[in-house]
């Protein structure tokens, strides 16, 4: 695993809040949080989150890095932006959550095989980097099978009717994936972006 934040093995890390502030998209506003609970109260899947955003922010401040990065909360986010627009302190909650979720996977606090979102995101990113576009057939299929062959068959069968409906109404096509033409150009840009990002993260 690529360790990007300073002390990936310590349970408590009192510099964690500072690291989040400097490195997570939106993290610079986290110090504005006044623990009012509007984010967790507005969230449609809050009851399926172990901690919820408000508690996560408090724990980041307390340096509870391990406990934070083992949370399931990042992966229940539906990106509805209720938390972002309602936060009375203009904390971009959703962005910070997604950043912490990526960190949790990157540093190995959570195993990809246990995190559906991470497997889905990988399938998605594979399609984007390969074709320039999301292939709505290959991404779900790859995702279904990312949890193992049996699970893949089960999930595919469960979605068969939906897929047939999509095919019948010509919302899913048969044949090669749709592609961005100049994929070399896109590849060069993305590789550079990945490089710049690694440079920033390494320099933190």
């Amino acid at each position: 695993m690529n360790a990007v934040s300073p002390t990936p093995t310590k349970k408590y890390d009192l510099s964690f809040a500072r690291w989040v502030r400097d490195n997570i998209d939106g993290g610079d506003r986290m110090n504005m949080c006044m623990q009012c609970g509007v984010c967790s109260g507005s969230c449609p899947l809050s009851d399926q989150m172990d901690l919820g955003p408000r508690k996560i922010f408090m724990m980041v401040r307390a340096g509870m890095k391990e406990a934070v990065l083992k949370s399931n909360s990042f992966f229940q986010c539906v990106s509805c932006y209720n938390c972002v627009v309602r936060c009375p302190r203009e904390v971009p909650v959703k962005y910070i959550l997604h950043g912490l979720g990526r960190l949790a996977i990157q540093e190995g606090y959570q195993d990809k095989k246990d995190v559906a979102n991470a497997r889905f995101a990988d399938a998605f990113w594979w399609s984007v980097t390969t074709f320039g576009k999301t292939d709505e057939r290959l991404v779900p299929t790859l995702y279904f099978f990312s949890a193992g062959f049996v699970e893949g068959i089960k999930k595919s069968l469960a979605n068969l009717k939906i897929a047939l409906g999509m095919l019948k109404t010509k919302r899913m096509h048969i044949g090669m994936p749709h592609k961005t033409k100049n994929r070399g150009e896109l590849k060069a840009i993305l590789e550079k972006a990945v490089e710049i990002q690694a440079r920033h993260e390494g320099g933190a």
Binding site: H98, G101, A118, A121, W125, T180, L190, Q197, H200
Partner: peptide
């Protein structure tokens, strides 16, 4: 010759900057 915008999962897979590079 457009490409994908990164949807809502791009940042989880690749991080913010590569996702923003798609739209750029």
């Amino acid at each position: 010759d457009w490409n994908c915008c990164g949807a809502s999962v791009g940042d989880l897979a690749a991080g913010h900057l590569p996702t923003a590079a798609l739209s750029a």
